[in-house]
Write a protein that binds this DNA or RNA. Structure first.
Length: 201
DNA sequence: GAGTAGATCCTCT
DNA sequence: GAGGATCTACTCA
């Protein structure tokens, strides 16, 4: 198992990176508690060109300035006053691409996730959807702007790969306000995986 | 089982 | 002052 290098995040094709993240392990390690999960659903946000992105048209604020940093950082932000959404910043400086991690398949520390989410049994809602997965891994805005090269928080490759035919693309979720950009097929997920958000098949 | 309202608060205009 | 990259629970059938 090895950490993904910064070179992985700094490529220019955010859609390719999003697709490559499927099957990788997202690992958090704090307070002596290790939790990890395999990424099964992501959404790519194409910076200034994408109306659904916080950085559309070159918008830059205190909140989203992390998107303008070099790839390989986290960008966590609070949505609807309740949910923390975990993103990975990609590309290099000045190009605010980001990838939203929407769902994981729990691998390690399931009990810890249950405790954090106050659930009793490990059903498939534990890390289904960006709000849930952030809660399960203990991610908050406090972690925004951190490096994915640290030992507390990183994405690793354990050699597992999904085949091309297991991966599906679709429009993104919850971005209807983005006009025609809402129809972009920037969401990638594993077909038939129980932890992918939306309606189960 | 499906559809909808309410939660809840930070950020930007 | 409005609205958002969401989730849950409750209603109704």
């Amino acid at each position: 198992m090895k950490k993904l290098s910064v070179g992985f995040y700094r490529r220019d094709n955010v859609l390719q990176i999003a697709r490559d993240l499927l099957g990788k392990l997202l690992v958090t390690r704090w307070n002596g508690q290790t939790t990890s999960g395999r990424i099964v659903e992501v959404e790519a946000y194409e910076g200034v060109l994408d109306k659904a992105s916080h950085a559309f048209g070159g918008r830059k604020t205190n909140r989203n300035e992390i998107m303008y940093a070099n790839g390989g950082l986290t960008y966590v932000y609070l949505c609807y006053g309740i949910h923390h959404l975990f993103n990975v910043v990609t590309h290099t400086k000045k190009t605010p691409h980001a990838i939203l991690i929407r769902a994981l398949e729990p691998v390690k520390g399931v009990e810890i996730m249950l405790e954090r989410t106050r659930k009793r049994s490990g059903d498939n809602t534990l890390t289904k959807g960006p709000g849930n997965l952030s809660r399960a891994l203990g991610l908050t805005v406090w972690h925004s702007g951190r490096s994915l090269q640290s030992k507390e928080l990183f994405i690793a490759d354990d050699g597992f790969v999904y085949s091309e035919k297991e991966i599906a693309a679709s429009p993104r979720i919850g971005v209807d306000y983005a006009g025609k950009d809402a129809a972009r097929p920037n969401r990638f997920y594993i077909k038939g995986n129980l932890f992918v958000s939306g309606k189960p098949k």
